[in-house]
Design a protein around this nucleic acid. Sequence first.
DNA 1: AAATTTATGTCAGCCTTGTTGACATATTTA
DNA 2: TAAATATGTCAACAAGGCTGACATAAATTT
Lengths: 177, 177
Amino acid sequence: MTDRTGTNATPIKTAITGEDGVDLSIIELLFFAYRDFTSDPDQILAEYGFGRAHHRVLHFVNRMPGLTVAELLDVLQITKQSLARVLKQLIDTGHITQVQGEFDRRQRELYPTEKGRSLALALARPQSRRIRAALGSSSATEREGIERFLKAMVNPELRAQIDKLPGNASGKEHGNE
Amino acid sequence: MTDRTGTNATPIKTAITGEDGVDLSIIELLFFAYRDFTSDPDQILAEYGFGRAHHRVLHFVNRMPGLTVAELLDVLQITKQSLARVLKQLIDTGHITQVQGEFDRRQRELYPTEKGRSLALALARPQSRRIRAALGSSSATEREGIERFLKAMVNPELRAQIDKLPGNASGKEHGNE
DNA sequence: AAATTTATGTCAGCCTTGTTGACATATTTA
DNA sequence: TAAATATGTCAACAAGGCTGACATAAATTT
């Protein structure tokens, strides 16, 4: 007999399992791995009064110097109003500078300053250390398997963004450095 | 000549690279992979007026039925006030029920209802589909490499949480089950 | 040349989800 | 009986998303 709301509030006491072949273990591994992966830079950021949003902006400006505001919005997939707040702070604190576009003077090209470059590196270092430790004794082949998997997790339309980053050229597998 | 604020705002035009052996490509792959991985359930959640916080609570209550509030706080690493809001909504909408602890009646054991179980599965399915597609033709060995890497990314003290989940027993590598 | 579109900026207000601090209640433990 | 514990709840605040509206300058189209 169910209750008057039509809801059956009977507790289910058995754990969910990969009933329909649902891959729970990798789902959870991704959750925990990402949670701890992002916790590394959080402490450094706090000293600057910055958050993760600043980190992402700073990272991609360092990786793609000269990218425009519109391009950055595309990578981050947020609205310009969201970006504006953190970008303004990064500019005011001298981590990023804007340069008027050479051909299209409406555009603002974003570049890191020395200060911004150095902070970006400081943020990347503990993350990189964690990755190196996690790879541990993995072979080059294993590393490739991991990279292939992670890249395949990205929406196909957006994989181009990854290829655009220096060192991630799609021609990589052909050995042309 | 630097400006009067002592800040050198000169734009750096070269992209950051793995200068000190910093592993930028995996850092970025994790960012993009996680971004798209979490976008799958977001659409379903929106139909219920739920967010990612609800998803996490629902997921772990389904994976560890009967866990107490304190245990859940430990897994999620948030404060009880944060949890209270979303948990209340999940209880009010009949996705989760509370049962008074049998031995310690101060405790509230959390269980999914049929409704909650079914939503948890609906949320896991597209994520699982994405994972399956990403694994593609990967061999069992490759999958193990990926799982080992992700697990190693988690803080050592917290790896116990993963082992506690059904199907993730640490004895797995001995081939039992 | 005028009209339209585009790239960016900005103001105002709202939502979710995290935080801290304080305090209440029931229950268990010392 | 007193103290500690598990949970709940109130209030206030912050970060970082969002939408909608409007402004400006520059490029493009008509």
